[in-house]
Structures are given as C-alpha cells and as structure tokens.
Amino acid sequence: MNIPMFKTGDKILIVSILIIAVFFIGWRSFGVGRDQQLTAVITQNGKLLKQINLNNLQAAESIDINQPLHQVILAEKGRIRFSESDCPNKICVKTGWLTKAGDRAVCIPSKVVISVVGQNQKMDTVSY
C-alpha cells in the first residue's frame, strides 16, 4: 500500500488554511481582556430576549424559553449556560458554561443565541 505524496497545491493550501485559522483564533483571544464587566445577551431570531449582567448576579437565575421548544438557560455569577433543551442534538447544552467575553452558545433549532460581551466590547458580532 503506497500512499502518494502531496502535490505542490496541497501543501500551499493546507499551510495557508492553518495560518489563516490560527491567526483569527489568536486575534480573537488577544482582543479579550480580563476583569471586565460581563454581560450575557440572549437573542432569538436576531431579536433581544434578555440581557443579564453576570458580575452583579447574586443568586442563580434561570430563564425558561417555551417557544418553539422547551429550553432552560441557567445564569450564575460570572457564567451562563443552556442547562436543558428539547432540541435533537443538544449542541447548545454540550457547549457548557460560557465564562469570558466572546463566548457563545447557539441553538439552531430554536434560533436562540447566548453571547457574552465584555464592557469595552461593543456588540459588533458582525466583525467576526
């Protein structure tokens, strides 16, 4: 069994994709500062459902969403997550806790997005 070698185009392609991806990941995490006000923004269908300041949260707060399927979002001091969902893949629940600015959890079936934004960071999600 002999596996043929890479051609020139293959190598250039693979290296450039990796460089681009690493550059973007690095750029994103570099721009995020620590010790800032964290706000969780919950949207559905692009419309704002609720905005929670995670730093000032004293007791845990849960948000129920019943349309179009049942979901529970759990917010605690400094973190937020989807804790229950009736969607088929449960990717939103598996994403786990969101703890820093820039973190996001997305549920495609219900079109609900939780994004955590920092104080010095405007909601310019478009720039990603």
Binding site: I20, I25, R28, V106, Y128
Partner: peptide
Amino acid sequence: MASLILREAVMLYYLPMLLIFAVVTGL
C-alpha cells in the same frame, strides 16, 4: 447557512476552529 437562519453573523465565530478540523478530517 447557520448565520442566515439565525439572521446574525454569530456563527462565523466558529469558522476558524472548524477550518482547522476541516484540514484534519479532509486529509
């Protein structure tokens, strides 16, 4: 497609991570 359905560019955030895995799984 996900960004279009959610009407937000939010999903493009996942793209760099997915591209790295695309290279591995593609190979």
